[in-house]
Simulated assay, not measured.
Amino acid sequence: MEGKVLARIGAIVFVSIAITATVIEMTREEAPAPASTAPALQPPTDPLRATLRHCQQLGEAAASDADCLAAWAENRDRFLGRTPTPAMPASNGGR
């Protein structure tokens, strides 16, 4: 009979410890996450990107806009990894 009583006492102690741990865990308040002091990383504004957005909003009219054509050429050169070619100087009338 002594073994059964000891087992019951052990089970009661185990259950009471489990209940206590559960109550403590449920009542514990979680600390709010610390506020980040690092500034948000934002890429610098790209004027080409802004021009491309403007051209996108123009729709079909952008196909005849010189600024849009130049922006598309620069974007294409960036994408392909080419260095932009300098503009050809105007000829002096065949001299």
Rank of each mutant, 00 (worst) to 15 (best):
Arg49Asn: 12
Pro84Gly: 13
Ala21Gly: 09
Arg53Cys: 04
Pro34Gly: 11
Ala40Leu: 12
Thr85Asn: 06
Pro84Tyr: 02
Glu74Ile: 06
Ala38Cys: 06
Asn75Gln: 15
Asp46Met: 08
Glu29Phe: 08
Val15Ile: 08
Ala73Phe: 05
Glu60Leu: 11
Gly93Ala: 07
Leu69Tyr: 08
Thr22Cys: 00
Pro43Cys: 03
Asp65Asn: 15
Leu41Trp: 07
Leu41His: 06
Gly81Pro: 02
Ala21Ser: 08
Ser36Pro: 02
Glu29Tyr: 06
Ser64Phe: 09
Ala21Gln: 03
Pro86Gln: 08
Ala73Ser: 10
Met26Cys: 09
Gly81His: 03
Ser91Arg: 14
Gly59Met: 04
Thr45Met: 05
Cys55Glu: 03
Ala73Gly: 12
Cys68Trp: 00
Ile17Glu: 05
Phe14Gln: 10
Thr27Ala: 10
Cys68Val: 06
Ala90Lys: 12
Ala35Arg: 10
Pro86His: 01
His54Val: 05
Ile24Lys: 07
Leu58Asp: 03
Thr51Ala: 15
Gly93Ser: 06
Pro44Ser: 14
Ala40Asn: 06
Phe79Gln: 15
Ser91Val: 10
Met88His: 05
Thr27Glu: 04
Thr45Arg: 04
Phe79Pro: 01
Ala63Gly: 06
Cys68Asn: 08
Met26Phe: 11
Ala18Ile: 11
Phe14Lys: 11
Ala66Asp: 15
Gly93His: 07
Ala40Phe: 14
Ala87Tyr: 00
Ala50Cys: 01
